[in-house]
Design a protein around this nucleic acid. Structure first.
Length: 570
RNA sequence: CGGGGUGUAGCUCAGACUGGUAGAGCACUGCGUUCGGGACGCAGGGGCCGCAGGUUCAAAUCCUGUCACCCCGACCA
């Protein structure tokens, strides 16, 4: 490819609306362009990277025995009504009507559609198992898209769905896909970690996320320092804590104190001069059945909604609005507490036996101090693991290690779905005994476009992108330093054609620009191997190979160049 | 949806407070010099100042509305 004819409008300045480095660099390198909030064009270089990720994904999925198909982006409402998600998915689901006023949505995920395909064709256990996948544009009308390709509304996803006669076979496939994902992300040249995860709106009971490790990641993951356990902090298991400083605190008399307009834990803590870890933070939630529940964590802890959902056994919870809070506690937001509260209470296990604590008094502008579990609240309180893990928390799996927290970008997730969708959509089969049974399902997603952003977040420097070789838009770039020196031009052309004979398409910067401009653009675009062909080198009979990643330079004799370079491309 | 902010040339931004011929740098075109890490000179082209109303002799500037985009929060692959 000749750079002079490539459509790659590079920029010296990053657009102001780009925040994260992957977004800035993708735009500056002329790979993507924003069209609307969370919606992007892929320009030629960006598309080549996208195709590389897709190619690796397809190769590994095919190798794993999955079959590619393509489902519609526009899906009829009926299927979504059958599964019940038409009502529960909310505004993230982009709904539209056709000319006959029939309702559709643009698919944010395709469990319904694929299940419809399978139920119409599968009759017998002999038709199973099946693993079907597609690479497709999805649309999720996110509340707040951001960070370029990291959280777009329209994005490209590989979604696979597997169908099985029994749970054991489904779990086998789950592990198989887990291993396939490890191969995929390893082949993409990414440093990643598979972690236990929440199942969220997709549903199901077992899930792992594949997180690319990067400081700018939106997710926090807890990993044990001793054993292999790792999980999203919202799900990372915490053992029962032994009596700590809080519970050893001498019991005090329950007292009511005035705390005018002090609503947050921080406000009240500094006002009363009581440490935040001796606060009982009381959050009022609404469950999916409409009832309210109070969730307690310590003032220094963050409640995990995922854990709360699990503890309550419900599909979703939502922080209650001010109206509900007032109804439940009899006070404005900021003054809720467990003492005398009518609503059901679930508390983090670390609050068991707490004494000498502070909490809201369920009365405007008042808090309680000297609160003691057992004496002042309970016994109806349910204790559970409700808080997000923090660095230093002990790992309950091995009981030895402590958690370290790292940031990650979720690029893939695997779910064991069970029969959630097959039951709702009546996707059944006849087993060997002639019994009608619902199909066991798993689903497996990879954010193709997000993987591109994650690769950049993980691998870049102040000059631009550093692509892992397998994702690079071109495997190698050749820069002829001069266009007037015939030896330079001829060597460049020979090198280009001999690489092409070996199956490698080089990007040749044949623009009539000064060398500095070409070098800067090369760094920005991030092709990992760069060959400089210049007069100086030719006089010595060599070309220079510069590695974009570590900046090292190798001198390669011209005659050996095609073979040596092809070898490095791999 | 709540809070904050921004819309002026392809990109980054001045100009607005105090209304009076629309600017700079980069990019682009031509010529010359230069030529291994974003060169220099000279000469050019390019703007419904987001959009719509209003005030005014006169609006990029003041007022109202609207749209778009960004950030923080709740939410989420």
């Amino acid at each position: 490819m000749r750079f002079s004819s490539l459509f790659a409008p590079t920029l010296k300045d990053a657009p102001t609306d780009a925040e994260v480095v992957s977004h800035k660099l993708l735009v500056r390198a002329g790979m993507i362009r924003q069209v609307a909030r969370g919606i992007y064009d892929y320009l030629p270089l960006g598309l080549r990277v996208l195709r590389n990720v897709e190619r690796i994904v397809r190769e590994e999925m095919d190798r794993a025995g999955a079959q590619e198909l393509l489902l519609p982006a526009v899906c009829p409402a009926g299927l979504w009504q059958e599964s019940g998600r038409w009502d529960v998915y909310g505004k993230e689901l982009l709904r539209l009507k056709d000319r006959h006023e029939r309702e559709f949505c643009i698919g944010p995920t395709h469990e319904e559609v694929i299940t419809d395909v399978v139920r119409s064709a599968v009759r017998s256990y002999r038709d199973l198992p099946l693993n079907l996948y597609q690479v497709q544009t999805k649309f999720r009308d996110e509340i707040r898209p951001r960070f370029g390709l990291m959280r777009g509304r329209e994005f490209i996803m590989k979604d696979a769905y597997s169908f099985h006669a029994d749970k054991a076979d489904c779990e086998r496939e789950y592990r198989h896909m887990y291993e396939t994902y490890e191969r995929i992300f390893a082949r993409c040249g990414l440093a990643f970690r598979a972690v236990e995860a929440d199942t969220g709106a997709i549903g199901g009971s077992l899930s792992h996320e594949f997180q690319v490790l990067a400081d700018s990641g939106e997710d926090a993951i807890a990993a044990c320092s001793k054993c292999s356990y790792a999980a999203n902090v919202e799900l990372a298991a915490l053992g029962e804590v032994s009596a700590d400083a809080v519970t050893e605190e001498a019991s005090a008399e329950l007292r009511r104190v005035a705390t005018p307009s002090k609503r947050t834990v921080e406000d009240v803590s500094s006002y009363l001069e009581i440490p935040v870890d001796r606060f009982i933070k009381t959050l009022i939630f609404q469950k999916d059945d409409g009832t309210a529940v109070a969730a307690l964590v310590r003032g220094d802890q963050t409640l995990s909604e995922a854990k709360l959902r699990a503890a309550l056994g419900c599909d979703w919870v939502r922080l209650a609005d001010s109206h509900t809070v007032e109804k439940v506690t009899g006070a404005a937001i900021g003054f809720a507490g467990p003492v005398g509260l009518e609503a059901p209470i679930v508390a983090d296990q670390s609050l068991h036996g707490i004494r000498g604590a502070a909490s809201g008094a369920n009365s405007d502008d008042e808090h309680l101090v000297g609160v003691e579990h057992g004496r002042d609240f309970g016994p109806g309180v349910t204790f559970a693991d409700l808080r997000e893990a923090v660095a230093g928390d002990r790992c309950p799996r091995c009981g030895e290690g402590a958690y370290t927290i790292r940031r990650g970008i979720e690029v893939g997730q695997v779910f064991y779905l069970g029969t959630k969708y097959s039951k709702a959509l009546e996707a059944t089969f006849l087993d060997a005994e002639g019994q009608t049974r619902p199909i066991e399902m798993g689903c497996y997603g990879i954010g193709i476009s997000r993987t591109i952003a994650a690769a950049i977040e993980q691998s870049h420097d102040e000059n631009g992108i550093i692509w892992p070789q397998p994702l690079s838009p071109y495997p190698i770039e050749i820069i002829p330093v001069s266009l007037t020196d015939t030896a330079v031009v001829e060597t460049t052309e020979k090198l280009e054609s001999s690489l092409r004979e070996k199956g490698h398409e080089a990007l040749v910067d044949d623009r009539d620009e000064r060398a500095g401009v070409k070098f800067k653009d090369a760094d920005l675009i991030g092709i990992p191997l760069r060959v400089t062909v210049g007069k100086k080198g030719l006089e010595k009979g060599i070309v220079e190979l510069k590695h974009r990643g570590d900046g090292t330079v190798e001198e390669i004799p011209i005659a050996e160049a095609p073979a040596r370079l092809a070898e490095k491309i791999g």
